[in-house]
Write a protein that binds this DNA or RNA. Sequence first.
DNA 1: CCTAGATACGTGCGTCTGCACGCACTGTAG
DNA 2: CTACAGTGCGTGCAGACGCACGTATCTAGG
Lengths: 165, 165
Amino acid sequence: MAEDELEIAAWRSLLLAQNAALRAIEARLAAAGQVPLTWYDVLLELDAAPGRRLRMQELAARVVLSRTRVSRLVDELVRAGLVCRAPDPDDGRAAFAVLTDAGRDRLRAAAPAYLEGIREHFARHLDPGELRTVRDALDKVTAAHRPLARIQASPAVRPGRGPGG
Amino acid sequence: MAEDELEIAAWRSLLLAQNAALRAIEARLAAAGQVPLTWYDVLLELDAAPGRRLRMQELAARVVLSRTRVSRLVDELVRAGLVCRAPDPDDGRAAFAVLTDAGRDRLRAAAPAYLEGIREHFARHLDPGELRTVRDALDKVTAAHRPLARIQASPAVRPGRGPGG
DNA sequence: CCTAGATACGTGCGTCTGCACGCACTGTAG
DNA sequence: CTACAGTGCGTGCAGACGCACGTATCTAGG
C-alpha cells in the first residue's frame, strides 16, 4: 500500500470507528436510563475540577463543544438539578457551573454504563499495545492543534465549529 | 496507568484528535474555496462506484451519514450541478445519484486540498508504524459494529440501519 | 472621574442532522 | 386480479450545534 493510501486509510478508519463506537456507547447509556453522553462529559469535568466548579469557558475547553453549546447545556443541567450556576466573586463577568450532590449521584450512577460502553464497543477490540499506540499517536495529533497546551491557565482555546455542524 | 485508565485515555484521545483534525481539514477546504467535506465524501464515493452512480441506500452506507441526510445532500449537489438523479430501470423504487462531469471536476479540484489537509493535520504527526496500527486497530472496532462486513462485491449487502440510525 | 478596548457571558438565528411517517413500488400468496 | 407484507425514497418536524451579536464587567490610559 502506498504511503498516501495508508494515510487516508488510517484517517478513514478513525472516522468510521469513532462514529460507530460513539453511537453504540450513547445507545448503551440511553438503554441503561442514564444521562446522555454530553451531560456525562460535562458532569465528569465538573466533578474532576477543584471545588467541583468550572467557569463556562474552561468547561467548554475541556469538553468537545463550543462555549455557546455549553451555556445551553448547563441551562438544561440546571433545570434537571444536576448543576447550579454561581457568580465568581473575583470577576463579575464570569459564571461558575457547580456540580450539585444530585449531579454527582447521577454521574456515579452513569459511570458503570459509560465505562462498560467504552470497553464493550471500543477497548475490547484492542490489545494494550494498540491502546497505548492509539493514545500516544492521537495525542500528538491533538497537541499539534492546541498550540497553547496547558488548558490549566491558558485563556484562549477556541473550539470553532463542531462536527455536528 | 491502570488498564481502565488506559482504555479511557485512548478513547478520549480518539475523540479529541478527530475533532481537532476534522475542523482543521474542513477549514482548509473552505480556505481553498473547495466543496465542504460532506460533499467531498459523497462525490468521492460516487466517483469510485461503477458507472459513477450509487443508489441512495448504498451511498448512505458508504459515507458516515444517515440515508435521510444523504437524500438532502444529493438535493444540494443536484442544485449545484455536480450530481444528477436517475431512476433504476430494474427497480422503480430505487433512485441513483450519478456523478456529472462537473462533479468530477469539482472532486478533482478539491482532492489536493483534501489530501494535504489529512497529511498536514493528521498523518504528519504519525510514523508509518503508528498509521498502520491505528488503521488496523480501529478497523477492528468498526468491523465489530458492522456484522455484514463486506460492502465491496457482495450483492446482498444489507446495511441494516444507516450509521445515523 | 471618564473613555476605549478586551473579556466572559447569554441569545437570535440559521445550518446540520436524524426520527417518524407517508408514498410508491416490488413480490408473494391467495 | 386482489391483498398484504417488505423495501427504497423523500419530507415534516424537532433536537443539536455554533456564529454573529448585544450586554455586563474588567483593565488601561488620560
